[in-house]
Nucleic acid binder design. Sequence first.
DNA 1: GTGGAAATGAAAATCATTTTCATTTGTGGT
DNA 2: ACCACAAATGAAAATGATTTTCATTTCCAC
Lengths: 121, 121
Amino acid sequence: MTRSNPRVLSTLERAGGFASAQEVYRLMQREGESIGLTTVYRSLQSLVDDKIVDVLRRDDGEAVYRLCGEAHHHHLVCKSCGDTVEIEGGAIEKWAKKIADEHGFREVGHTAEIFGICKKC
Amino acid sequence: MTRSNPRVLSTLERAGGFASAQEVYRLMQREGESIGLTTVYRSLQSLVDDKIVDVLRRDDGEAVYRLCGEAHHHHLVCKSCGDTVEIEGGAIEKWAKKIADEHGFREVGHTAEIFGICKKC
DNA sequence: GTGGAAATGAAAATCATTTTCATTTGTGGT
DNA sequence: ACCACAAATGAAAATGATTTTCATTTCCAC
């Protein structure tokens, strides 16, 4: 993936760093960019693989992609408006490590996400 | 919703309190219950509306339904062989609640999973 | 029983996402 | 420049969960 990747990334940035694949595609169409929906999906997926963007789920199950810094963090997501707060996970890191050690697991990683309804909703 | 509702609920219980609509449907089929997929969806939705079950999303976007009040647990999964250990998440519960409180979130839930390579692999 | 509202379910529609596959593009070797 | 081959692209079809439509069935209240 080389040609499309940067265009998709830049569109995602322009969208406020938070959009679904369909939205990125429609936005690029509107701006006269020539790209296929399939390629948008593939580019986003490769950006996820490269850990340049993050993916999470809206309430209706649609995947939304989000620019993401390199620092490992977790998310507090509003189920209603999709608003996202990056949070620190010091406690989690320790917990994950401890549990994994207890069970003899190596090369340990983890995922954690908190969701609820935010103040505004 | 009256006739199907209890049957769907009881099936969800039997499934361990955690399953997708399709899984509930297939389970009922296998057990010889006569019910339509549409009705399973409608029953689950009404159980969600009544706050008897909770809905959240798998990584692939499929909705999974969970009995409310079920003590939920987390998983330690081996990336290599898929072996899974159920673990307790006391620390996580507290962490999630604390963070959510700090940001004024209501109706809070969370997901967490630890993965790595197990002893055998 | 009778009539009408609510519940049911089969089939079709919807919608995001993935797959297939033929075409285009980029690259390295000559 | 030319050729060959691999990677990238995108249109169209396939997939799979979920929702909608609509005709039929069930359940009450009278």
